[in-house]
Every structure is written in C-alpha cells, then in structure tokens.
Design a protein around this nucleic acid. Structure first.
Length: 216
DNA sequence: TGAATGATTTACT
DNA sequence: GTAAATCATTCAA
C-alpha cells in the first residue's frame, strides 16, 4: 500500500480549513484514513489515522471545555477549526487534538492511533525500537511520541506545513464505540463518539465493539 | 499556596 | 489482572 501511495505522498497538500470548520462528529469520522504529516528537518513523518474521538464542549462532560471552561489550556478550542490542541496528561504523555467547528464552539477531535506510512525508522528510534510495529502508534501518547508532537505544537495551524492532514485512503469499514478513559463523564461516556478503522490492526484497543457502520 | 486529578503507558504479579 | 511513574492544570482557600 505504501508503494501505491508513494507519489501522492510527494504531492500531498494540507486539507483546507473548510474540512475542520464543520460538525465535530463529522470531522472525527472523516479523519479516519487521512494522512497526518509532520515535516521535520531531514525527516518527513507520515501516518494514516485509524482512530479518532470527538469532544464536544461545552455540554460534553468529558471535554476539557465542559461548561464553557475557558483557560490558557483550552483557549485554542474557542478559535476556528484546523488548529492543534496539544495537552499533557499523567505527568508524561502528550495528546494530539484537532480543533473543529466554528469560532466559539469549543470542540476537538482526539487522534488516538495511526498506521506508520513513512519515516517509520525515525518513529521507531523515538519509541525505542519496539518489536511489534503496532506499538509505535497504537495509542494517543505513543502517536505523539513517534511523530515528535509536543507542547511546542499547541495552537499551530494544521492547514500548512510542517504539521498537517492530507487526503488518504478511506477505510473500507468504520466502527463506532464509546470513548476511552472517560468513565467519569457519566452519561456522556456512553456516547459512541469514538470512530475506528475496522480493518486496521493499529487501533489502540477494542471495547464492546458494535456492528460495522455503513461507509458513506 | 496547596491538594487533587487525569482524553496513558509500562512493567510487574 | 494491578500499580507505579510523574507533572501541568485546575480549583479551593
């Protein structure tokens, strides 16, 4: 599959702002299959997104922007879609999110897993050369580590290099499940706002999988 | 100023 | 299966 896309990798352009300034649920689902590109000096890292979650403040209790909470950390979510929301959790991990929706709508899409497509050696080096390639990027913290995404990427524009999304092969089948690690959010934790590529071995984990949803 | 906690990962039993 | 690692952010005082 890499060979088939070798040419498109060379010419892949950032998705336009309009991709992001829509309903966060739609953006999250359509992030599946897109290529996450990070151009570093001497390296271009590319990973195909296979897992994403929607966080829909201010009503969504699982969202950092719940109840309209607006702080230095959440500020970027109140701007237009297509910018990066990167935050730090558990004392050691970064999480990469994409702001979605119109200005004033504090919505975001958490990118939880991806398939390494280019620059795999560089990713492996950062991650300590795990035996199983899936361990490179099959979790939100691992993904950030492998792709070199950290606090310095907070608020960067994802509609231009060096960090952006580009068109990629859509999944054959998509599945929806509840989100991971948000049990504290009460009824909001039950919302099926996690989307995964049903055929990818790189999804972070399965939980009460539901029947495959029809692909657009 | 201090305490609680978390959109996780890893190692260990 | 459980727990430790480890700290920015948040909120209460």
């Amino acid at each position: 599959m890499l060979a088939a896309y070798a040419n498109t990798l060379e010419s892949s352009k950032p998705l336009p702002r309009e991709f992001y300034t829509r309903c966060v649920l739609k953006v999250a689902q359509e992030c599946l299959g897109k290529l996450l590109v990070h151009q570093l000096s001497g390296d271009t890292l590319v990973a195909r997104i296979v897992e994403a979650e929607a966080y829909r403040g201010p009503l969504d209790r699982a969202a950092h922007s719940y109840k309209g909470r607006r702080t230095q950390r959440t500020e970027v979510m109140y701007g237009p879609g297509g910018f990066a929301y990167v935050f730090f959790v558990y004392g050691m991990h970064y999480q990469f999110n994409i702001v979605a929706g119109q200005p004033g709508e504090p919505h975001a899409v958490l990118i939880r897993a991806a398939e390494p497509w280019h620059g795999q050696a560089s990713m492996a080096s950062r991650r300590g050369h795990p035996k199983d390639a899936r361990l490179l990027t099959n979790g939100p913290g691992k993904l950030c580590h492998a792709l070199g995404i950290d606090r310095s990427h907070y608020g960067v524009d994802l509609c231009r290099p060096p960090l952006y999304l580009a068109e990629g092969p859509a999944p054959r089948a998509i599945r929806q499940t509840p989100r991971i690690g948000v049990d504290y959010a009460g009824k909001w934790a039950a919302r099926p706002w996690r989307w995964i590529d049903a055929d990818s071995p790189f999804v972070s984990r399965c939980r009460s999988p539901q029947p495959p949803a029809k692909v657009g």
